[in-house]
Design a binder for these strands. Structure first.
Lengths: 342, 342
DNA sequence: GGCCATACAGAGAGCGCTTACTATCCGAAG
DNA sequence: CTTCGGATAGTAAGCGCTCTCTGTATGGCC
């Protein structure tokens, strides 16, 4: 909380005085929504530029219009998963003449709440909250309350990649189905001992993907392999995979909950001197751009992140929600093959 | 421009009425900066929650305090280069109890100006503009004017990865030196015909890196190889590299202006059935996380993006600028080797 | 020459909050 | 039983804009 006062900013009135006109006239010149004589306009514009005047958005929106702003909340701005979603949102939102601001919450429920509050106070048009939801029932309840308040404040809340809340439409990904498809793919190759590397505990995406994996296993009557909790990032994947690969009864395949973690798994395999997929198969989820450049190229499940963001952006911009969740698609590449016969 | 009015939001006065107190009392309860009797406080808080009241930040900051917000402008929110910088900024800024909002400008000078204006109007504490500057002298002049106005509006502007402007401190990367180091590395391996894939024309980063490349070439008395303009992204790199690799007198090495483009070069080589580095060496710039996962791992120049962002964040948060630019460091990996003897 | 539409410009009332400055109420001190 | 001073609460003056009303020239017209 900086307690320094604003250094006596230049106001509309200052400009009016300098131009020798009334405040109303300056406002009209600036907004161009009312006829003003050419010479008057010039005088005003000159005064504006001489004084380096900047409209005060607070005063402006207090006196009328809404703030033309849409916020996007993501876990981590450096994660391409969120970057792609955010870019999709922005594309649609800016087509609607609104400005997008993005904020990173670090996946912290409290930060999430903090930014929602900030944006609500600014009377943003809408807030898109992207990514799985962590924090359990308690957080969900607080979020639900926030959604109610947001409605009262005139801000729409749009969920993206997590389940809807009363009053907040969601654009969803069928993670469970995608994960089941992937595991089925591994099973089809003959894998019977598959390690699974989850995302952070308590996250809805983590849970849906794990559930899908188990669905496929159960349907095939195959027992679950080793399970490890990760963090949706490369380092977490590397660490967990290092442990898994050192197991006496090493699995023939490792499924990571997302591509970033899978990249870490590949790194761990490399460090352990194991060949992928000859010694161990590896799969990810999301189909981030990096999965095509990985060594070997990564078998994964494509999530249409751009489209996900765009849909959320359209809802945020005031268009109707499009029904139906987005269905991920299996992308078979080189990191999965049949297990070596033992 | 949505012309719908705000749907009669709940105001402080409504809360006051409901709680049977004056507006001043409600304000004091909300801000906790003045003694209020416990029972009164409870009544007010109950009214607040019953009405789902949300403070109007515009009214609040009009009547006093500044907006506690720092903006970060990046070219592309989906590009890890910018994501990493933004994350660094946010880390420092949030340590100073300020909230960070990020916006993507698509590298368009006009969008850049638009967001600066938006943030200035909101009386943001500071705006960090990240990434090389495109748009030539005209844009620079407009930006300089904006910096002046920002000062008048009480907003600091901090440049990050581009040259400083009068009134706007900058955190710089010595791209030229890094690029020279890299090219020298290639030369040391014996390469004499090196293709260079630039970033977008007119961008300061593009120019600095190219200049460094030429410095090294000139110092060694080696002639420039083929030059191609790219776009700092994978696809641009792939396209340009495809053309280069098809040349009759194919270069023995390709240097891309950044890692993303280098990933595209690797993809092009793969498609052309060429082995890296046996048939052609490839190098990038930035040392994004993907360069360690690429196939083969990418020789590049490490730019301390996180630290870059953090320094900018510290300045944005009001701390003094730290002198000196950041020096990139050559990271030799597997994508560069001696050229095959012909 | 008198009238009225036309084109501008100014006045002034808020928008929803914060914050001096005042006004009460009460128990403690004199 | 007054007189005070603390503890609370209320009043009201803005903060910097926008926008609806009101003027007031100007010029075209009968």
């Amino acid at each position: 909380m900086s307690d320094k006062r604003q250094p006596a900013a230049v106001t509309l009135a200052d400009v009016a005085r300098r131009a020798g006109v009334s405040a109303a006239t300056v406002s009209r010149v600036l907004n161009g929504n009312y006829p003003v004589a050419g010479r008057t306009r010039d005088r005003v514009l000159r005064a504006v530029s001489e004084l380096d005047y900047v409209v005060n958005a607070h005063a402006r929106s207090l006196a009328g219009r809404t703030s033309d702003m849409v916020g996007v909340l993501v876990n981590n701005v450096a994660d391409p998963f969120f970057g792609l979603i955010a870019a999709g949102v922005q594309a649609e939102v800016s087509a609607a003449e609104l400005l997008t601001v993005i904020a990173g919450t670090g996946g912290e429920p409290d930060e999430e709440l903090r930014y929602v509050e900030l944006l609500m106070r600014q009377r943003a048009e809408a807030i898109v909250i992207a990514g799985g939801q962590t924090g359990g029932a308690g957080h969900a309840a607080r979020l639900a309350a926030l959604v109610r308040r947001a409605g009262a404040a005139g801000t729409r809340i749009v969920l993206c990649g997590r389940p809807p809340l009363p009053g907040a439409p969601a654009v969803e990904i069928d993670n469970r189905r995608g994960a089941a498809d992937l595991t089925r793919h591994l099973l089809a190759f003959g894998h019977r001992r598959i390690a699974y590397l989850t995302g952070p505990a308590g996250n809805t995406t983590t849970e849906a993907r794990l559930a899908g994996h188990r669905d496929a296993l159960a349907a095939a009557g195959v027992a679950e392999g080793p399970l490890r909790e990760g963090t949706f990032d490369r380092e977490g994947g590397r660490r967990a995979a290092t442990a898994i690969l050192a197991m006496a009864d090493r699995p023939t395949a490792i499924v990571a909950a997302n591509d970033l973690a899978a990249a870490g798994v590949l790194a761990a395999a490399r460090e352990a001197g194991l060949a992928v997929p000859a010694d161990v198969s590896v799969a990810g989820f999301d189909d981030l751009p990096i999965s095509r450049d990985a060594m070997p190229t990564l078998t994964t499940v494509r999530v249409p992140l751009d489209e996900l963001g765009r849909r959320a952006g359209r809802i945020a911009a005031g268009q109707a929600a499009e029904p139906g969740g987005l269905v991920p698609e299996l992308i078979a590449r080189d990191s999965v093959s049949a297990p070596a016969s033992r």
